[in-house]
């Protein structure tokens, strides 16, 4: 009995020792020397791997930052200035303060505004429907409402409003840009978040002639140019029958939304206007 115990202890022990030596030697031979700062930076990053920075994931961004030794042109949309500031502190670099951004849906072609002209059946993805036809509402630039953007969102910051058939972006959007890539029609844009989350934008990307666009959708931008004339800051440009508000120039003065004849210009998170119906009738005095 004793003998058996002894033999097993010795044989197992020697086996274990040999294995440990082999493992140690292999580990030494294939050792990868990595900058320890990469780990530190990667720890600071949110770890969502959303790709909002334009790289493959958080680790890739950390490697890139350490390699370049600068934060020039790099950003972490979900982490924001806070995270970049921390990283800058750790590495002794300087981080540029960036304006916070958010994704914005530039289409208001809900079922009411752009009533369906046909019915669609088949794979419920925008990617396929976009290749197949112009969309149930008939607008070739309008939201298809099958939710590729919502499916692409890793942050639960979007949902589909089934009543209107349009995606809604919640305030917890980190502007990673996944939805922008997922939308086959490029309806979603990353814009400046604005003071107190206030934003003004043209909620339409249709470049068809006014009459044609209006036929499909009540709230299409018809390219009339009224908002361009109204804007005192040259923030609005009109190209291909479509107005566009430059968020860097816009001062959120709220002059343009009331003049839009089709209500295509949206303002978000502003307090309600005092005399909304009158503004249109007598703008000069008000």
């Amino acid at each position: 009995m004793n003998e058996i115990t002894l033999i097993s202890v010795i044989s197992l022990g020697s086996l274990g020792t040999i294995a440990a030596i082999i493992l140690y030697m292999v580990a030494q031979k294939f050792k990868v020397i990595e900058d320890p700062r990469i780990d530190i930076v990667a720890d600071k990053l949110p770890g969502a791997n959303c790709g909002g920075c334009g790289l493959a994931g958080c680790r890739a961004l950390a490697e890139e930052i350490v390699k370049k030794e600068s934060l020039e042109g790099m950003s972490c949309p979900p982490g924001g200035n806070e995270v970049m500031g921390e990283i800058a502190k750790v590495l002794g670099l300087e981080a540029k303060e960036q304006d916070p951004t958010i994704a914005v849906v530039r289409c208001s072609g809900s079922r009411e505004n752009a009533p369906p002209k046909v019915k669609y059946e088949g794979d419920m993805t925008c990617a396929f429907a976009h290749n197949l036809f112009a969309g149930e509402g008939g607008c070739p630039k309008g939201c298809l409402s099958y939710g590729d953007c919502v499916a692409s969102c890793d942050f639960d910051a979007m949902y589909m409003d089934h009543k209107t058939g349009l995606p809604v972006i919640k305030d917890n959007c980190v502007s990673c840009g996944a939805c922008v890539k997922a939308c086959p029609r490029s309806i979603i844009e990353i814009r400046k978040r604005g003071k107190k989350d206030r934003r003004i934008f043209v909620s339409c990307i249709n470049v068809e002639k006014g009459g044609v666009a209006r036929k499909n959708c009540q709230v299409a931008c018809i390219g009339c140019g009224k908002c361009v004339k109204e804007c005192k800051f040259d923030a609005i440009t009109l190209e291909n029958n479509l107005a566009y508000i430059d968020f860097n120039k816009c001062t959120l003065c709220r002059k343009c939304p009331p003049v839009c004849p089709t209500n295509a210009i949206h303002e978000l998170n502003f307090p309600p206007r005092r005399q909304r119906p009158e503004t249109k009738a007598e703008p000069a005095e008000a």
Partner: peptide, 8 residues
């Protein structure tokens, strides 16, 4: 009724 559109 509305016409149906679907892929072939």
């Amino acid at each position: 009724n509305l016409l149906t559109v679907s892929g072939s």
